[in-house]
Amino acid sequence: MIAELILATFFGLLLLGIHRKIIARIQRRPGPPIWQEILHMLKFSFKTTWIPKTATPVLFVGVVLIAIGIWTAAFYILVSGGSILVILGIYMLHKIVEHGFGLSSGSPYGKYGGVRSVISAASEIPLFVSVAVIAVYTHSLDLSAIMQYQQVHGPLLIIAFPAACAMFLVILSKMPFGPFSIVEAKELVSGYKTEHFGIWRAGLEICNGLKTFVLLAVFLAVFIGPLSLPWLLVGMILLIVILAFACALTPMMSPFDSVTIQMLVTALMLVYAAIVLLVVHP
């Protein structure tokens, strides 16, 4: 099991590298090689590291461990076909982790990054609405049952297309350089991760790799259905290409606009959920 976990982490980092490369090519830059994020993680792990004097040491270190821990948990829930609600719970808790990263150092940049991550809590609500819609169709929230449903009835991507769009938006909001990545905007240096350097940042990179892998795999499992490993990897690469285009072609929004758009999406999703509940599946 540990081997799968490590492979997933490295593949997730590779996906992030592909993401960067495509964004660079769209913007007519050569861009870094696609394995840059893996090198990045290794580079940070070889840096001299200490804990800032102003930080709260236990939280400063503990939050890195928690970040890797929760996404490890999400990975195993994915592998065992467990409840999608738990994975979404972990997704929401990532917000708390970002918050912890930002606040624990005492740096104002980190603090504003952390506060922005709390403000962008609006992005999770469409997620729950889309999960509710899926539950209405499949009568279960277990990943294995959702995949079985799709084997019989065809992919949910077609049946519940707006729900897929909402979840795509949610994944987009967690992608670096995206329109909603206000938590690591450049006016805040690096946002919540400004003060986590050296091995702490390397740990964060591990978490990011695992997070990318899990989120993309969950999207494919929920909206496409069961896939064999090669097709899963191909699907994830395709998804990251689409995400890269979305990130490269949209400017980063101001925090206010970002929240407004997420609230609008939430409202649309609520209307869609009401239609599904009342008309399609009364």
Binding site: M1, I2, L5, S45, F46, K47, T48, T49, V61, V64, L65, I66, A67, I68, G69, T72, A73, Y76, G198, I199, A202, G203, I206
Partner: peptide, 18 residues
Amino acid sequence: LLIVAFPVTVLSLFFCWM
């Protein structure tokens, strides 16, 4: 077991290098 051990292993590996 892995959820508890994996983060500790990774961070201590990185830490012991430097």
